[in-house]
Amino acid sequence: MKGLLIKDFRLMKNMKNSILMIIVIAMGMGAYIKDASFIITYLALIGVTFTTSTMSYDEFDNGYPFLLSLPVSRKGYVVEKYIFGLLLNGGGWLLGSVIATVAGAVRNTAPVRDSLMMSLALLPFALLLLSVLLPFHMKFGGEKGRIVMIITMGMIFAVVVLGAKLAESMHIDLDAALEKLPAMGTGTIALGGIVVGVVILLLSCRISIGIMEKKEF
């Protein structure tokens, strides 16, 4: 596990220029844009993308057979990717939150408490990103994975829209249900969201292990 983490951090060296550039852009956004939540999701997404990039590096030149002949189980490989993903995704989220909070305080656009609440509320989305992207990448590899994921997301979106339309035709009031949410308190929602996010992440990890165990190299 530790060996694989070292490998992935070493692979990240190949992306150091992009990382620096992205941090500079995020800080620029902090200074100029109003919606600080964008900075947090942006950096969290970048963290996930970097994780899948290390998988592309692993895949490069048919690297998997060798990697899996090292003292590494397939399950171990997957779990390591999720840990690495959490570190980068979490790192991106944290950095984004710091930038957003500092920018909000310095520019006097948002009180620190609001910024922190927003960060917490966005954490489940960050986890969701990781939970969706990694299994797709495991199953289909870099290029194909992206295409399949976009199609799937489109389909999910279509299902949600159809579901909403269906609810509307059946006279179920979704707006009223959504309006009840704030009554539960932002903290409770954020906490609930995080719990759901973690459960989805664990489920996603389980699925990825299944995908990897079935593969032939």
């Binding site: 530790k2 060996g3 070292i6 070493r10 490069f60 030149d61 048919n62 690297g63 057979p65 060798f66």
Partner: peptide, 26 residues
């Protein structure tokens, strides 16, 4: 086990200096 595969090895994006600590941990 020590393994050499004809068509597979460490990622081409690593250097020898990168592989030593990885092997050391594994």
């Amino acid at each position: 086990l020590g393994v050499v595969l004809s068509d597979s090895g460490f990622s081409g994006y690593l250097t020898v200096a990168d592989t030593a600590p990885v092997l050391n941990s594994l």
